[in-house]
């Protein structure tokens, strides 16, 4: 991780152009998610079997799906769902990862215990763990969220631990310590500034990954129950209509790609 090319700290002003573009894409999607549910008079599950797979019109701005449900409502709900899940996963896994990472860098015993645990977790592909956990409680978002967080914290842990180890051994931190400052001050003064840029980058990628994982679960039919709108599941359900109603299928595909793309741009460069 390069520490000098700080992408955080100065806020939006210090962002590169592509990061700003990423931010704008995500904000537009967020506005769409809020606006869509607010504007649309239809509910998530309201069907009209006489008006299936309609093209966009003044009644249905984004057309209707295979049940005659409003795509505007469903798309905005689905985007909202992905955003919320991504957000809480990122926050949870970052908190766990950073706490344990700093702790492990400081203490030997914790370090070796965590080392074993992380090695085991790393040897199991994340999606497999998520699949198994999602199978335990189908339809439960709590479990989905726990499963994704459980997989994602490891990356924060590894990065934070590595950087913190360096910082702890730096002369600056050691002199601070000798001057008698507390642990919290040392963390705030020395560790946080060096890990913050990396955490920001990881968080942006993590948001993208959470969204991808959820879409993947929807795609293999695990963990999502009707009538909920989820981008991956919508892709599967609408796929058979690709020649009949390509505009409907394109919507969830475009939304996933835009969200992930936005997060990737926001993350900036990964080195």
């Amino acid at each position: 991780m390069s520490l000098d090319r700080s992408s955080r700290g100065g806020g939006i002003m210090k962002m590169t152009l592509s990061q700003k573009i990423g931010l704008v894409i995500l904000l537009i999607l967020l506005v769409f998610a809020f606006g869509g549910t607010w504007v649309s008079p239809y509910s998530l599950s309201q069907q009209d079997l006489n008006a299936i797979l309609q093209p966009p019109s003044t009644r249905h701005w984004l057309g209707t799906d295979q049940f005659g449900r409003s795509m505007l409502t469903r798309m905005s709900e689905a985007v909202m769902l992905s955003f919320s899940l991504g957000l809480i996963c990122v926050i949870t896994s970052a908190i766990i990862g950073v706490t344990l990472g700093v702790w492990a860098a400081w203490g030997e015993t914790v370090d070796s215990i965590m080392g074993v645990l992380v090695n085991i977790l790393l040897a199991l592909p994340g999606l497999v763990i998520v699949l198994m956990l999602a199978a335990i409680a189908p339809g439960s978002f709590l479990v989905l969220y726990l499963a994704i967080s459980l997989v994602q914290w490891v990356e924060y842990f590894r990065v934070v631990r590595a950087i913190t180890k360096n910082v702890i051994h730096s002369p600056a931190r050691q002199s601070t310590k000798m001057m008698g400052f507390g642990v919290w001050y040392q963390f705030k003064r020395h560790i946080w500034p060096s890990i913050a840029p990396s955490i920001f980058t990881l968080a942006a990628f993590g948001g993208a990954n959470a969204i991808l994982t959820m879409a993947s679960l929807g795609f293999v039919y695990v963990g999502i129950q009707p009538p909920l709108a989820e981008l991956g599941l919508m892709t599967v359900e609408l796929f058979p209509y690709y020649s009949e109603a390509p505009w409907v299928l394109a919507q969830p595909l475009l939304a996933i790609a835009l969200m992930v793309f936005g997060f990737h741009l926001l993350a900036g460069k990964r080195t």
Binding site: A208, L212, A215, S216, F219, G232, T235, F239, L253, I256, A257, L258, V260, F261, H264, L265
Partner: peptide
């Protein structure tokens, strides 16, 4: 490549 990266694997497959 950023565009491709933004697509889930199954979308590329589809």
């Amino acid at each position: 490549s950023s565009l491709i990266r933004a697509m889930p694997v199954f979308v590329i497959g589809v």
